[in-house]
Design a protein around this nucleic acid. Sequence first.
RNA 1: GGGCAGUUACCAGAGUGGCCAAAUGGGGUUGACUGUAACUCAACUGGCGUACGCCUUCGGUGGUUCGAAUCCAUCACUGCCCA
Length: 312
Amino acid sequence: MGFLLLSFAIVKRNTLIVLLGPTGVGKTDLSIWLSKTYNCPIISSDSRQIFSELKIGVAAPSAEQLLQVPHYFIGTKHITEPYSAGQYELDVLDLLDKLFSKNSMQLLVGGSMLYIDAVCNGLDNIPPVKPEVREKVHKLYEEFGLEAVRQKLKELDPAHYEKVDLQNKQRVIHALEVCLTVGKPYSKLLSKQKKKRPFDIIKIGLNLPRPELYERINKRVDIMMDEGLLEEVTGLYPYKNLNSLNTVGYKEIFDYLDKKTDLETAVALIKQNSRRYAKRQLTWFNADAEIRWFAPNEQDEIISTINRQLAQ
RNA sequence: GGGCAGUUACCAGAGUGGCCAAAUGGGGUUGACUGUAACUCAACUGGCGUACGCCUUCGGUGGUUCGAAUCCAUCACUGCCCA
């Protein structure tokens, strides 16, 4: 009997716990506790905390927190390095492959919806857009407007033209960029199929009543200012046009530094844009029926839910 | 105490007899989103209804008028100025 149980434990499937939730809900604190509980490192799923130059404004884990448990994908890229959800998917899968050989339980933590999705469901294999193509398409957009980009897309990929939100310049431009990069219609690369992963996934969502969440977000912005966000952003001013700095907390202060607004307004906008971001995250997460939701202080419930799931 | 200005939806703020459930902006809600995603984009925002629509609103009350957020009277409150 004991032998049976033991062998059962050994063949237990690898499991990835995904801790997610809107910005400011308290993922970081809980993740450290979970990491210690299950004795596994933290794999961050945050498209901004991955940049080493962004700290205060993206509420990256503190130096102290980083010392407590190993973190991956925190401050491992420079803001000048291009990075994407697609690359992230590959990087995480590689890492998980290694980590699972040591511990059948791993922990992914973050709020970047597409990044989490890339790990859990996979993205189709689309090569990175060539820089010269990107430049070309952006020129087209700058000079002739969105309609010109739309028409070009209609010509190269009529199927996708029918599906995209034609108002959404980012999506329209990207679709055309991909068409031009790979030399065939973007839509041909999209399978709409979820990839099978060689591990189980347990999704734990953290949320709070809206007013409370917003309150936390507002307060956190004030704390960021106290911690020196203005200085951090000022130091990054030369890089303000980089995509990595098209980020809440940075772009608003760039506007202040450009004298487009006063500091008070900039801070208010950071709060507002953070709230909106949180809302968008929740919209995305709400569509995912696999997520089990908890308040950030329901640690016992979270543990028992995970353990129950593992026992199955 | 006297004079002037004002009171409009969650907030700010247009509207000064019918085309007004009421511009616009903010805030908020809901949603879309397969690689630059903390991005980018959309809808809604007095109530009920899928909709044609119906109902309740523009400080209070009372008038004028076929018809009032808009005109008159009065009361209340707010701001500024003079005392």
